[in-house]
């Protein structure tokens, strides 16, 4: 696009009349602005199209559905009659993501503090890069690792948690296993660590030196300085960061799909095998899906899209509010 407008104007510049050259400049400007604005509008159009086409393609399947789409725990869209609902998917998605968030947030903030305030300055940069490497590992590799390396180790952890904390319903149940929602949430926690810690780190970097020095000059220890000057300043940034992490965890597909073993129905005992999420269910059932089946998967994907959209928008709003406040 740029090259072909470039050619046009080069030809025009050679024209002896100066006014013509100037007007071509304006024409070039017009074309270029339209291209740039058009690209921006295309981005908006893509977002709109995602919503429209997912809805459109989901409707026929939803019409054939004989179960309640929101409350049914069944997922049998390929049968006749088709019966499917998202209750189990929503349960698995929310529980595994929240657990992952619970595990990842403190660790990620710890990492951000470590790199910003504890690590010797000469190594802080490389160590930060090391954490960012975690984000470069693709999710399929986390899935493979989670399935073949982590899961066998999680069996012991799960039995321990079950025997020690079994009186808490969430950790209860008779058969703690390794392909459980708990294992999936550990994998998810590892995967969202880098995003939470890198945004937190950015926020910590913006803490004004004056506040840090004010705290230190009062006779604060390093931790007290962090508590007085850093954490209050970075609070909404950290909240936004963990919400972005939550959105990431909810949408993660492959790693979860590989780790979990599908067992139908909602099971509150998260240490037992089973459970599935919106995304994992789509990846696992797509290959065998009939036309109605695909529509049902698209419908469930639409729900996932809306949920992550809300979480992400809320996260952005929180981060944006911080900007105004500062």
């Amino acid at each position: 696009m740029t090259t072909d407008t470039g050619v046009k104007s080069a030809a025009a510049v050679q024209s002896p009349v100066r006014g013509a050259a100037m007007s071509t400049g304006r024409a070039g400007d017009k074309i270029f602005v339209s291209a740039a604005r058009g690209s921006g509008i295309l981005v908006l159009a893509i977002m709109a199209a995602i919503a429209v086409f997912l809805i459109w393609r989901a409707i026929p399947a939803l019409q054939k559905n004989e179960a309640n789409f929101l409350t049914s725990e069944q997922w049998d869209p390929n049968g006749t009659p088709a019966r499917f609902g998202i209750a189990q998917l929503a349960f698995g998605t929310v529980v595994s993501s929240l657990l992952a968030l619970l595990m990842a947030t403190p660790v990620a903030i710890g990492i951000a503090l470590f790199i910003s305030y504890y690590a010797p300055r000469s190594v802080a940069g490389p160590l930060g890069y090391l954490v960012d490497l975690l984000a470069a590992v693709p999710s399929i590799v986390y899935g493979l690792w989670g399935l073949l390396v982590l899961a066998p180790h999680m069996e012991g952890v799960s039995s321990f948690l079950n025997s020690a904390l079994g009186w808490i319903p969430l950790f209860g149940g008779d058969n703690p296993g390794k392909n459980s929602i708990f294992t999936a949430s550990v994998v998810l926690a590892i995967m969202i660590l880098p995003i939470i810690s890198s945004i937190s780190r950015e926020v910590f970097l913006q803490v004004p030196r004056a506040h840090v020095e004010a705290a230190l000059a009062l006779g604060a220890t390093r931790w007290e300085m962090i508590r007085l000057a850093v954490l209050p300043y970075g609070r909404s940034g950290m909240i936004g960061a963990s919400m972005l992490g939550l959105g990431r965890a909810m949408g993660e597909t492959i790693a979860v799909a590989m780790v979990l073993t599908f067992v139908p129905g909602i099971n509150w005992h998260i240490l037992e095998d089973g459970g599935t999420t919106f995304a994992a269910n789509i990846a696992n059932s797509f290959a065998e899906a009939t036309e109605t089946g695909r529509g049902a998967l698209i419908a469930s994907g639409l729900v996932l899209f809306v949920i992550t959209l809300i979480v992400n928008m809320a996260a952005r709003a929180v981060v944006a509010r911080r900007k105004e406040f500062v």
Binding site: P208, A210, H211, E213, A214, A215, L228, P232
Partner: peptide, 10 residues
Amino acid sequence: FQRPNPFPTM
């Protein structure tokens, strides 16, 4: 300090 630096959130 040179510039007043009260803790802004307090």
